[in-house]
Simulated assay, not measured.
Amino acid sequence: MFPSYLEQAHDLCFLNHDILVELLRSGEKNKIFHQQINFLSEEDKKLLEQSNDIFEWFELTGRKLEYVETLRRTVFQALLSDFLHFIYESLSCSRKEKLTVAYALLRKPIQENLLLLEIMAIDINDFSNKLTENPLALRAKNYGGIEGHTKRIQSVLKVLGEEERFNADYLAQLRYQKSEDGFDGICNKSMHLFTEHKKIKTENMNINQIFSGSESKQTQWHFLYSRLPYLIFYARRLIEHICGTFSKTDPSYLNNIEYRVMAATILWYPNVEDRYKNDNLDKFVDSTVNKLEKTFLDAGKNKPSKKDILRVKDSGVI
């Protein structure tokens, strides 16, 4: 049975997920992922009618900027949808005690989907060129190992203005490093019955994950729900940033959802067991507390009590 003490963490993950689902739904409804094309001449129009591929037409007519922008919007929509499907199924499997499946499903969205979204956020021309000429260059293994991933994430955090709240080294470690405090090892073990990398090598007389008992499941749940809220919060901020370059969202709406997530994050962390806490998570939560407290003070109110934080989580109103 799913532990009741993890309900809050599970709900926090789904809160971030559901906000992104609404972003995608609203974007599709309002056609913000569509790119308007203006014909410069009748010849332009005829060339498009004769072409089998709009991207071929962009090249024929020298429309580099429109090529890149159309590609960016089209790929972003598809990547986001794919990311959300995997996160949803992973969380749902965790809720049903299918932890091996939950971890197996988590690997692609946090390693690959987020990678492409990060590249789109910091260098869309590099992304466009690689996708057009050599898509395999966009594989995670081609980005310089942990150091390369860290450097990219640092650039993203600078763009997001989130250098204080998040740590690029830790985000890279969680997603790509085969360590005890990282998803890559357990995700790989969940995907493969046997693994040979020295840090996750299958033990003698064992087959990865299939003998997990109650104690192992508890450990897997604790790790998942002490780390995923941090990762998915970062993913939401990244995705909201990219989407904001397509169409401006009402600032009051963005503030409302940000306040809700911050409050839910503050309420989540005290329930994380001490052995699963660390300086990076402490910094993330402390910074979030400071941001929410500053919002209250700027509004002419006292620092929020627990009752206030509970109210904000449900309403998004300061």
Rank of each mutant, 00 (worst) to 15 (best):
76 F>Y: 02
109 P>Y: 02
270 P>N: 08
284 F>N: 01
232 I>E: 00
197 H>T: 12
64 K>A: 10
57 W>C: 02
73 R>W: 01
295 T>I: 12
191 M>P: 06
223 F>E: 03
253 Y>M: 14
267 L>M: 07
81 S>K: 11
158 K>F: 08
312 V>F: 03
270 P>R: 06
51 S>H: 01
60 L>K: 04
59 E>S: 15
24 L>I: 09
63 R>H: 04
192 H>T: 13
316 G>D: 05
142 N>E: 11
255 N>C: 11
53 D>Y: 12
175 R>I: 10
49 E>P: 01
243 C>K: 00
45 K>F: 14
262 M>K: 05
248 K>P: 05
214 S>D: 13
318 I>N: 04
171 L>K: 00
111 Q>N: 14
23 L>G: 03
165 R>Q: 07
62 G>A: 06
68 V>L: 02
178 K>S: 08
229 P>H: 02
168 A>P: 03
194 F>D: 03
24 L>G: 03
59 E>H: 13
122 I>G: 04
277 K>D: 12
275 R>M: 13
113 N>W: 05
223 F>H: 06
278 N>I: 10
58 F>H: 00
230 Y>A: 06
114 L>C: 07
307 K>Y: 12
115 L>S: 02
133 E>H: 13
48 L>P: 02
258 E>H: 08
87 I>D: 00
29 K>C: 07
44 D>R: 03
121 A>N: 05
85 H>T: 15
46 K>M: 13
298 D>Y: 05
306 K>F: 14
140 A>D: 08
3 P>C: 13
169 D>I: 06
74 T>P: 04
213 G>Q: 12
85 H>I: 15
284 F>H: 05
104 A>M: 10
215 E>R: 13
135 P>E: 13
190 S>Q: 04
86 F>A: 09
220 Q>V: 08
152 R>C: 04
135 P>S: 15
164 E>M: 07
4 S>C: 07
198 K>E: 15
210 I>R: 03
149 H>L: 09
95 R>D: 04
15 L>S: 00
151 K>E: 13
309 I>K: 00
36 Q>S: 15
252 S>W: 00
53 D>A: 11
212 S>N: 15
89 E>G: 05
186 I>Q: 01
51 S>Y: 02
26 S>M: 09
120 M>S: 04
17 H>T: 04
179 S>Q: 07
13 C>L: 05
67 Y>P: 02
82 D>K: 12
303 K>P: 11
314 D>Y: 08
